[in-house]
Design a protein around this nucleic acid. Structure first.
Lengths: 196, 196
DNA sequence: CGTCAATTGGAGCGATGACTACAAAACGAC
DNA sequence: GTCGTTTTGTAGTCATCGCTCCAATTGACG
């Protein structure tokens, strides 16, 4: 029994996400968001509290929608061999980073600076997520090792390599590499997990 | 026959570089630079003209000093096999990205946003450099191909992979990975160039 | 219709952004 | 010492930042 919001929270978050995705946290101002969403700044603050919180919610939306297929590959337990697991993960990432109608690269990697957690609020929140990604990949590789598969390096090194590859793919996408090129890089990186 | 500058241009550029390196172009303000260098803003503008130009000169200094060993590996024609070439390049980069007493990661990759050239002045200048890096790597790989060495993929894919690996290493360094870990990733990535 | 609750647009807050105007200061040349 | 040249610090320009205050608006409910 009150005035209804002119734009739904979901719609607002999706529009905010796309701005953060394209320009990053620092270069996206409240005025930009306000104009893109079509509501005044006061409505944004009434709904989301702060720019930092809006970013957090936008990234959460990103992870649970756009990035869901990629995250699903992260702990895909039916991926076949380790190489096939890595290929599935990196190809899915490459696909996400070159989706038509959306900004290039990864919204989380590129949306916040890549600095240490204390550099900015946005860095702090994405830093924790990246740690989780690394941990998840490493667990999956450890499982391959335990089941007897020979890998080309330790799970620690390979987890860092795969996460680094995802970030490299994101940056290549930002710089204009097309999907075909990214898929080639993804395939090559995945293939490198082959044991001796 | 005029008043001498209180801080040399070289010293100013080195200090400016380290700030841009650590915080990036956008998050480094003229006031920050002024305080770190120990001169007023007017001196900075008198010496360098604009923030954009100061950044350009700082990055040029970075490339010609700190990054010189890494750039030297880029077209090292006495590197042995392609795998050895890649290993030399990536290990030198890993070393640069974890130098004691300097910010983590690559000043050029992390100092400017990773967006398209039109996103910001800083992006525009680094974009051109990245294109050159790719081209140089590819030429080197083509030379290996022409001399009969079998590679694991096309020079186009491998050049993108190697540049992507450098950027991945830089980001891992920014997130706190230590030198040993980066060296492991570098070795692994280089090893992947082995022909079939 | 009147009431209450939530949202809205707009105006404006203090802080900070890049940048500049200007006069005092510091040298070499004379 | 005086002059000319360049650098210096200070103060201030206008724009924009994240954010807030407030009165007007919009509905469902009685």
């Amino acid at each position: 029994m009150a005035r209804p919001r002119s734009v739904s929270k979901e719609d607002s978050l999706e529009l905010a996400l796309q701005l953060f995705w394209e320009r990053g946290y620092d270069l996206t101002s409240i005025a930009d968001l306000s104009a893109a969403i079509g509501v005044g700044p006061s409505s944004l603050y009434n709904s989301f509290g702060s720019k930092e919180n809006l970013f957090r919610l936008a990234i959460e939306r990103y992870l649970s929608t756009h990035a869901a297929p990629t995250l699903g590959r992260l702990d895909d337990k039916d991926a076949g061999t380790a190489v096939e697991y890595a290929r599935g993960l990196l190809r899915e990432a490459a696909k996400l980073y070159t989706s038509k109608g959306f900004p290039r690269g990864c919204a989380m990697f590129e949306g916040a600076g890549s600095g240490p957690p204390e550099q900015s609020p946005a860095c702090a929140m994405t830093h924790a997520i990246k740690r989780d990604l690394n941990k998840t990949i490493r667990k999956r590789l450890d499982a391959y090792s335990r089941s007897g598969e020979m890998l080309s390096a330790s799970s620690k090194v390979l987890a860092a390599f795969l996460l680094g590859s995802m970030r490299g793919l994101s940056q290549l996408a930002c710089d204009g590499a097309n999907r075909t090129e990214l898929m080639g890089v993804a395939d090559h990186a995945a293939q490198s997990l082959t044991g001796p």
